[in-house]
């Protein structure tokens, strides 16, 4: 299905947030996920189903002042 991932349209095989993170190879990263403007708790990754057109943001920490 197609989702909006970090501002760009992307075709994915994953059907849950946990699967998406694995598909992207980000399992070991300290990150956070937002689905349609709502934060997805880490404990809910496996149970949060993705739907066509979801707006997903995946963020991490970078240098900043």
């Amino acid at each position: 299905m197609k989702i909006q991932l970090n501002g760009e349209e992307k075709e994915i095989a994953a059907t849950t947030v946990a699967q998406l993170i694995a598909e992207l190879g980000l399992e070991t990263r300290m990150l956070a996920v937002e689905c349609d403007l709502e934060v997805v708790a880490k404990s809910a990754y496996a149970t949060t189903a993705l739907k066509e057109g979801n707006r997903i943001e995946i963020v991490h920490m970078i240098g900043g002042g």
Binding site: L5, N6, G7, K10, L24, G25, L26, R29, M30, L31, A32, E57, I58, V59, H60, M61, I62, G63, G64, G65
Partner: peptide, 29 residues
């Protein structure tokens, strides 16, 4: 130490990250 929150570059998932150098166990982030 302050950090900024930004989108992960999904095409470079294996690139090293600030927190590989600044240990969150050692510093208050």
């Amino acid at each position: 130490i302050t950090v900024a929150v930004r989108r992960v570059n999904i095409t470079e998932a294996d690139k090293e990250n600030l927190l590989d150098y600044i240990d969150p166990k050692k510093y208050t982030i």
